[in-house]
């Protein structure tokens, strides 16, 4: 669990590599990477909560949606500047995160997952019927202020945001707090039996996860410039987040990042060959095979690769 020099070297290499990328790849690839960055943020958010504590959330689009709708409504309907609307959106999402926490104080497992799924569906219904003049109802909202122009700027912004979140969460999870959250996922009763208040730990995980989801949701909507409720509160969107985290490797921070990039590019490269929904069969099959043979995800394959490289060097 300790920090080593090569951890920082790897992060440094990744940051430099990602920031240099616009010099060598096309705008089309950059646009795909922007989506991968946002998916990575959502997958990290899911991982901080569900990957660590074992409380599987099916309600993350609910949190992302709160962040996205809050800043979209504030900027478009009330002309609030984004410097204010985004922090307010994050705050609102954290309050919503506490709402998601409430059932977790009493239930877990599949029941918790179903309750959080209900939150997502609830918000989908609410945005359509409550004040459609503000939310845009079923049609959603368009003409939302964008923060950047051009693929390269959008890429730099999303990459900076994603890497800032990833490095902060990675450092946070390297502390004893990360160990305690992982311990909840392994045996919550034993954590209580070790004298730790699991309610407080879970509240922290929920709030942190909500903060990231809110931040990601707010920036995402200001990248897209539009908001469609059916796309946001969609079961496919939810599963894309979860599969990215599982495929990459939960409880690792770097895993969900790898998973998000792998999935986004896989789906993108499959598009010319399989333009319809059948693409999802291919990624489903890959996810299934990987999960069967390497449940710890792609990150474990990368780790093994590094280990064998190291062995080869020392031999």
């Amino acid at each position: 669990m300790g920090l080593r020099w090569f951890h920082f070297a790897l992060w440094g290499g990744l940051i430099v590599g990602m920031l240099l990328l616009p010099q060598v790849v096309s705008n089309g690839t950059l646009r795909t990477m922007i989506f991968a960055n946002y998916l990575a943020i959502f997958a990290i958010s899911w991982d901080v909560l569900s990957g660590r504590t074992g409380y599987v959330s099916f309600g993350h689009p609910f949190l992302i949606g709160i962040g996205a709708y809050t800043t979209a409504i504030l900027t478009k309907r009330f002309d609030v500047p984004v410097e204010i609307s985004i922090p307010v959106a994050v705050l609102f999402t954290m309050i919503a995160g506490l709402l998601v926490l409430l059932p977790a104080l009493r239930i877990r497992g599949s029941y918790f997952a179903l309750v959080t799924l209900a939150f997502m569906e609830l918000l989908y219904q609410l945005v359509q019927v409550i004040r459609p003049d503000l939310t845009g109802g079923t049609r959603g909202m368009s003409g939302i202020q964008t923060l950047t122009r051009g693929a390269a700027n959008g890429y730099y912004l999303s990459t900076t945001l994603m890497l800032t979140i990833a490095v902060s969460m990675w450092l946070l999870m390297k502390t004893r707090l990360g160990t305690a959250l992982s311990a909840i996922g392994m045996n919550e009763e034993s954590v209580r039996g070790s004298g730790l208040s699991t309610t407080r730990l879970k509240a922290f995980a929920f709030l942190t996860s909500a903060m990231i989801a809110g931040l990601g949701g707010a920036f995402y909507v200001h990248y897209l410039g539009s908001l469609a409720p059916r796309a946001l509160f969609d079961i496919n969107f939810l599963f894309t987040i979860i599969v990215a985290a599982l495929l990459g490797g939960t409880s690792t921070i770097i895993g969900p990042m790898i998973g998000a990039f792998f999935m986004t590019f896989l789906l993108e490269y499959l598009r010319p060959v399989l333009p319809g929904a059948e693409r999802y069969f291919v990624y489903g099959a890959i996810a299934l095979l990987l999960y069967m043979y390497q449940p710890k995800g792609l990150v474990e394959l990368v780790r093994r690769g590094f280990k064998s490289l190291n062995k080869g060097r020392t031999a």
């Binding site: 669990m1 946070l172 502390t175 707090l177 160990t179 392994m186 070790s194 004298g195 730790l196």
Partner: peptide, 23 residues
């Protein structure tokens, strides 16, 4: 804790019940 080493298992018992101190 099944996926933690002996040392990490003991670490959980040694932790203060204070999130800031844990960090």
């Amino acid at each position: 804790f099944g996926e933690m080493s002996v040392a990490e298992n003991i670490r959980v018992g040694l932790m203060p019940d204070n999130i800031w101190q844990m960090i």
